[in-house]
Simulated scan of single mutants.
Amino acid sequence: MPLSFCGAALLALVAYDVYATILHSRARVGPISSALSRSIWRVARLVSSRRSRQSRHIFLSALGPTLPSASLRRFRPWHKWPS
């Protein structure tokens, strides 16, 4: 029974995240999308910390537009559809 509750809670969280990220009329980010974007940004800043200022700026500027697509990609199923 507790496992069913955890599964239902996880589905509810994902449904809310999809609603807040995609369907909500205001520019809002859901809790999963926010955590994913923050973690990607932290890793990118860590990787770019040893670069020169200009190189770091270029790297982080190129990474910014990939964050929304990373948020949308996480909803893609992991298995391949039958052809």
Rank of each mutant, 00 (worst) to 15 (best):
13 L>T: 08
2 P>H: 05
29 V>K: 00
53 R>W: 14
81 W>M: 05
38 R>K: 12
48 S>C: 11
53 R>F: 12
15 A>I: 05
47 V>S: 10
40 I>F: 06
16 Y>D: 11
51 R>S: 15
53 R>T: 13
5 F>C: 00
82 P>A: 11
5 F>Q: 00
63 L>Q: 08
59 F>E: 07
27 A>P: 07
25 S>H: 05
65 P>E: 07
61 S>A: 14
28 R>T: 00
2 P>M: 10
56 R>H: 03
29 V>H: 04
5 F>E: 00
36 L>H: 02
39 S>R: 09
25 S>Q: 02
10 L>Q: 11
79 H>A: 14
34 S>V: 00
57 H>T: 15
70 A>F: 09
10 L>N: 05
16 Y>M: 08
35 A>T: 13
45 R>C: 06
57 H>D: 15
76 R>I: 15
13 L>W: 08
22 I>Y: 12
66 T>H: 07
54 Q>H: 15
65 P>Y: 05
21 T>W: 10
12 A>V: 10
39 S>I: 10
81 W>K: 03
31 P>L: 03
27 A>S: 04
34 S>Q: 01
11 L>D: 07
75 F>W: 13
30 G>L: 01
14 V>W: 03
62 A>P: 06
61 S>W: 06
60 L>W: 08
4 S>A: 13
19 Y>V: 10
56 R>D: 01
41 W>V: 00
49 S>E: 12
25 S>E: 00
77 P>G: 03
22 I>C: 09
14 V>F: 09
81 W>Y: 13
3 L>Q: 02
25 S>Y: 02
5 F>D: 02
82 P>V: 09
62 A>R: 07
42 R>Q: 05
14 V>K: 02
29 V>C: 00
36 L>I: 09
14 V>Y: 02
66 T>M: 10
60 L>N: 02
69 S>W: 15
9 A>G: 01
67 L>E: 01
3 L>W: 05
